[in-house]
Simulated scan of single mutants.
Amino acid sequence: MTPIAWFICWSSAALLLHVFVGYPVLVWLQARVRPRPVARRAILPTVSIVIAVHDGERFVRAKLANLRQLDYPTELIDIVLVCDGCHDATVTIARRSTDPRLTVLDHPNRRGKAACLNDAVALTRGEVLLFTDVRQRLSPMAVKELVANLGDPEVGAVTGELHMENVRSGFAQGVDFYWRYEKGIRHAESLSGSTIGVTGALYAMRRSLFRPLPPGTVLDDVLVPMRVAALGKRVVFEPKAMAWDQPSQQPAEERRRKIRTLAGNYQLIQMAPWLLVPWSNPLWFRFVSHKLLRLLAPWLIVALTISSGLLVTRHAMYATAFGALVTGMLMVGLALLPSRLGRLPPLRIALAFFYLNLFAAQALVAFARNRRLHLW
């Protein structure tokens, strides 16, 4: 039993260290030692803004007003808002808009975001496609900053930066810390080549590179950039193109959304198995390190806890590892207590880390039970 426990302990520890420390440090070093700057140019191509929405009456009026405030020639923009089985007043509110650039599509039966994006793109005329969600507010310069990156012929897609506002609870602060960590990785990936994913809240691409999405695709913000990279173009990160959103304040609010998006990674592997093939996926190492191994993290943590517990009397190193894992569990427990103690930064981070990995474990179960993720 000891050799098996030893192998599990060391392999789990090595993979966890690579996922959360080694890979981020590696891409940071690549960005520092061998940077690949983007040759930005102030260009003004025609831009088609595409928004898919389901029951978004709370946000659609503000979103359309926000789009009217973009600092970009109005005659160069068209907007397609496609409503996916909306049962509220989204369509009514959108059609009251006096913006002549807006086209509203209403699909009475819910078909999923991918089908809506395909329909919307078919109606657009822009050289650049800009995808955004109904909930987030965009900075006035967002479009100009994104398309400036497309002035570089090597760049095929570019993502903006999503900022969290109204971060009140300890859980939300922990999630905000994690999101800042994630954005740091994406920035380093971009500076050293290409980033793996884009933020669905704000990303743009060359229209010529868009291919219709498979029905039911959940993670268009991963599949689209991976397709762009497979065509030999870069996918970059533009921090000056900003969008703002509000995080979930409690784990229960975040659970459904996070499980769905994490389960979408399993769907993506099933839908696009070429992503797992190094000679088909030019970003294979980054995809495995940044996406796939993250899905394994909760199981690796469990394996490391059990194996180091079995080896705890063999060496102080195993005792230290086991003690650190138990300490982490205690920190999560303290963070859940209704006291000021739970608002301490280390406890907030531990709580967010626990829940994000719990959701990742639940995502595998959810996907196994329900493959029709797009209809959740």
Rank of each mutant, 00 (worst) to 15 (best):
L311Q: 03
Q250P: 09
V224R: 01
F59Y: 15
A243Y: 01
I77N: 01
G174F: 08
A303W: 03
L44S: 13
R372N: 06
A65G: 12
P24E: 06
V121T: 14
A188M: 05
R34G: 02
A243S: 14
P212G: 09
H315M: 11
G56Y: 10
T124L: 08
D245H: 13
A297P: 08
V158K: 00
S248M: 09
P24Y: 07
L26K: 11
Q30D: 14
R314F: 14
E154S: 15
S48P: 03
A39F: 07
W6C: 10
V326L: 15
G184W: 12
C86G: 10
R371E: 01
S339T: 06
T103G: 01
M242N: 12
P225G: 05
N166D: 14
H18T: 09
W279S: 15
A201Y: 12
R207E: 03
L358H: 12
G232I: 02
H163G: 04
Q267K: 06
L16N: 08
V21A: 13
T132G: 04
F7T: 15
G200L: 04
Q249M: 04
H54M: 04
G85F: 13
M331V: 02
A42P: 08
A89V: 02
F354N: 00
S248N: 05
R207C: 04
S11D: 09
A252V: 13
A324K: 02
F287A: 00
I43E: 00
I51F: 10
L275A: 10
F20P: 02
L129R: 09
L268M: 13
L67V: 08
W284I: 03
V33R: 14
D176C: 14
I349D: 07
M1W: 10
G170Q: 07
S97D: 10
R41G: 03
T132P: 08
G323M: 02
E165W: 07
L375R: 11
R234D: 01
V82Q: 00
S307R: 03
A366K: 00
L373Q: 00
P247H: 01
T195E: 12
L117C: 06
T320I: 15
P73Q: 03
L150F: 08
L105I: 11
C83P: 01
R294D: 10
L334R: 04
R135K: 13
I306F: 08
T217S: 13
L16F: 10
S208L: 12
R340P: 03
E145A: 09
R110M: 12
L26Y: 10
D133V: 10
S280V: 08
D221K: 04
W28E: 11
L213N: 03
D99N: 08
F367E: 00
R111L: 12
L16H: 09
A319S: 13
T195G: 15
M164C: 14
G342F: 06
V91R: 10
I349W: 06
A114D: 01
P278F: 06
P247V: 02
W376N: 04
I93T: 07
A114C: 06
E253D: 15
A5H: 11
R234S: 01
S208D: 13
A352C: 05
Y266Q: 05
V222W: 11
P278G: 10
W274Q: 11
Q362L: 08
I4S: 03
C9S: 14
W299T: 04
R206M: 00
K183Q: 14
A229C: 10
S190L: 00
V143R: 00
H290R: 13
M226F: 02
C86R: 00
R96G: 14
M1E: 10
P45I: 12
R137H: 07
I269G: 06
Q267L: 09
